[in-house]
Every structure is written in structure tokens, then in C-alpha cells.
Simulated scan of single mutants.
Amino acid sequence: MDGFSKRFHGIVTMVTALVSLLILSACDHDFYKTGDSDLSYLHTDFVEARTNSASAFISARTDDGAQLTLQPALKTPWATKGDTVYRALLHYNKVEKGVTEPVGISPVAVLHIRLSIDLPQVPADPVTFESAWVSRNRKYLNLGLKLKTGQSSGARAVQSLGIVCNSVRRQPDGGRTFYLQLYHQQNGVPEYYSTRVFASIPLADLKEKDSIVLDINSYKGKVRKRIAF
């Protein structure tokens, strides 16, 4: 068993709290403006953003490899750990000599791959699939999804997301194909309206000639995406 397979063991990672933050953030902020508003000229990038000891964001590296210094530092309710790197979607103004003014930052769920072997079942409640792409630095497979959500009169429920691996197959060229499935549990959350969320799957353990087959249960049926490296 290689190092990748050893790290597969364990149950699926469920980012329930982060999914809640993603939904709240999407409801509170809409940076995708058009026309001549101030927001129409913003830059928007997926980043790895770092906080200082006071849990405020002070720098970010984009998926294109640009290193940004954020001035002033940006404090958010959802980033609570100091000296930590977060996966996020950053909205910022013009960059001058590597320094920029941040306008807003939203959390991106990081879904680490786990084996499905120990799970009695893999919940696959439907989502709306929008897009899947490998980041330019090839560190992440990014997903654009819409989750149906709403408020109920009962106890607050939170949806769960994760990625599980159902099998790995060796190919004649020596590469490996990982058959993945999106884990999604609605957890009783009402389905009144749709909210866009983004998630990133780390690809550090994948090598040249490896590939991914990802299955997503959507409201329109199963979506299968094939990604080669």
C-alpha cells in the first residue's frame, strides 16, 4: 500500500460548519456586479490567504502564483485562527508593487479525499453542478456548486460536504485512476432557494499520468467529470 492509500483510511471529512459559513457569506455578499459600480472593477481570485496573530488576513498567494500583501489587514468573523493559511476567494483592488487593498474574502471548503470503505453508505443528496477545473498551479481541483437551503422552525441544521474514494485502478501506462464521489448530506435543511458555494480538493498526492473520475449527484442526474494530469 503506497503513501497515498495509507492516508486514505478514515471516514469522510464533513465540513459542516464551513458549509454554513459558505452559505452565510454568499447570502451577505455579492461581488459579481456589472456596469459601472465600484465593485465592477474588482479582481477576484482563489487564494491561499494567511492571517496574523490577531486572525486578520495580511497576505495571499493566488492560484496564478502572485504574492499579495493586503493593506489594511482584513478581519472576518469566520477566520478565527492566527498565523494560519486558509483557502479562500479574495476580492481586491488594483495591485501596486505587490500591495493591494482587500475588499472582501469568502471561505472555500477544502475537501480532503477519504476512503469510503468504512462507511455504511455514502450520502449523495443532489446538488446543482456548475463547474470543475484544476487550478493553474495544479494544487487543487475546484468545484462550483449550488446548494439548496432555507430556514426551518426547528433546530438549526447544517449540510455536510466531503469527497470519498470508491476505488483506485492501475493503468497500463503506470498511472492511477481515482474514482471519487461527492459526499453531500442535506441534513434536513429546507430546499427553498439555491446558494453558490465553492470547494477545493487538494491534489498533492497525485502524480503525472494519474487521473480522477468524479461522480456528482445533481438534480438533473449523475454528472461524471474526468480530469487527467
Rank of each mutant, 00 (worst) to 15 (best):
C27H: 08
I117C: 13
A199E: 02
N142S: 10
I113P: 00
K148C: 11
L18F: 09
P77C: 03
M14V: 10
H9E: 09
G82P: 03
W78D: 07
P126K: 01
V168E: 14
I105T: 00
K139G: 11
H9P: 00
V12R: 03
E130W: 04
G188M: 09
P123C: 06
L42W: 06
D2S: 10
I212T: 08
Y219E: 12
L22A: 08
L214M: 14
K222N: 12
I163L: 06
T69W: 05
G175V: 05
K222W: 08
L22S: 11
I11N: 14
S131A: 13
Y179P: 02
K148A: 00
F229R: 03
Q171W: 04
I23Y: 04
I105E: 02
Y219G: 01
L70M: 02
V223H: 06
L111M: 09
Q67D: 15
M14T: 09
G221R: 10
L182A: 00
E101T: 15
F46I: 04
A17C: 06
L74W: 10
S37L: 06
E96S: 11
N166R: 13
A157C: 14
L18W: 07
E208W: 04
Q186W: 01
L68T: 01
H9Y: 11
V47Q: 07
D64N: 12
L42C: 09
K148V: 10
R87S: 14
D36E: 12
S153H: 06
P102V: 00
G154H: 09
L145M: 05
N93A: 13
L42A: 04
D83P: 00
V103I: 15
T44G: 12
M1Q: 14
A17M: 03
K75S: 10
V19D: 03
A73G: 01
L39P: 02
R226A: 10
F198I: 00
T195S: 15
V110K: 14
D36P: 08
F31W: 15
L89S: 05
R114G: 02
N142D: 09
A26S: 14
L70Y: 06
R138H: 13
L145T: 03
A124P: 03
S167N: 11
N217C: 07
Y41K: 12
Y183C: 07
S200F: 07
L21S: 11
A17R: 08
Y92V: 05
V122M: 08
G10W: 12
H91S: 11
F129C: 07
V12C: 08
R138W: 03
V122P: 02
S131G: 03
Q121I: 11
V95N: 11
R176Y: 04
T80F: 08
L70I: 05
